[in-house]
């Protein structure tokens, strides 16, 4: 009773699934770094300035190439587009599906199920908010710096967007990584259920850590932004350059 393969199945579902995970993984890891870079402001304006110039290649070429940043932003942007497009396949396709999921979630009261809706909602939010943010980064990469960023956050009223985006990305990313580990069976030696419990703890720690870091960072930008609100537009000069002058 050997089966005859009658249909030649498409390889795309496998590829899509891998791409979804790969883009998700890349984005999540990128966001960790991103959060660390951005939070360099907590170490002082100079630190932040250094990080920003670093990415413009200042320390390699001796001069700034903001286009480097634009290029990188474009890459991230396209990954997000791909990731979102793939994720869109999983979204509730119509009202009926949505309401069935909603009812199901309410009746199950089951954490991993509920967290999926959190992912969908945060993903949806990010799709718009991240686009705005990325567009800014893409179009004015040279305006990344202690004062310019702080002005954007405070004087240009970007902070509500960042606040929302922060929560969205930290929840979404951590849940996504947790799901990724479950999905592909990573760390699955021995007892998968205790692995899962540990992963879940790690996930919460991750979210909270980056939220705290992000909030502190945002507060720092806001403080600088308020202090600097009189001089919007002025760019930061690192302290050592001031001394030279």
């Amino acid at each position: 009773m050997k089966m005859m393969i009658t249909k030649h199945p498409s390889a795309w579902p496998a590829r899509f699934d891998l791409m979804q995970s790969a883009t998700g993984l890349f984005l999540a890891l990128f966001m960790w770094l991103h959060m660390f870079f951005v939070s360099s402001i907590l170490l002082g304006k100079d630190a932040m300035w250094t990080v920003a110039r670093f990415f413009e290649g200042y320390f390699f070429f001796g001069t700034n190439f903001p286009l480097l940043v634009s290029g990188f932003v474009a890459l991230i942007f396209s990954l997000i587009i791909i990731h979102s497009a793939l994720a869109l396949r999983k979204f509730p396709a119509n009202w009926k599906q949505y309401s069935r999921f909603w009812q199901h979630m309410r009746s199950m009261r089951h954490a991993d199920t509920t967290l999926w809706l959190v992912q969908v909602v945060t993903g949806f939010i990010m799709f718009f908010l991240a686009s705005v943010h990325l567009y800014v980064m893409l179009s004015r990469p040279e305006l990344i710096g202690p004062y310019a960023s702080a002005d954007r956050v405070w004087s240009l009223r970007m902070w509500p967007l960042y606040l929302l985006l922060l929560f969205a990305v930290e929840l979404h990313g951590a849940v996504g990584l947790y799901r990724l580990a479950i999905k592909w069976g990573w760390f699955d030696r021995g007892d998968p259920q205790s692995t899962r419990r540990r992963l879940k703890t790690a996930k919460w720690i991750m979210s909270i850590f980056f939220l705290v870091l992000g909030l502190a960072t945002l507060a720092a930008y806001i403080k600088i932004g308020i202090d600097h609100s009189a001089n919007v537009g002025e760019l930061y000069t690192p302290s050592w350059m001031e001394v030279q002058q």
Binding site: P9, S10, P13, A14, F16, D17, R89, K90, M108, H110, D112, T113, W116, R179, I182, K183, R196
Partner: peptide, 15 residues
């Protein structure tokens, strides 16, 4: 099982 109604459809909800 190699499609979105099969194993790739699973979203790791773990219910």
């Amino acid at each position: 099982v190699g499609d979105d109604d099969g194993v790739f459809g699973c979203m790791s909800l773990l219910g």
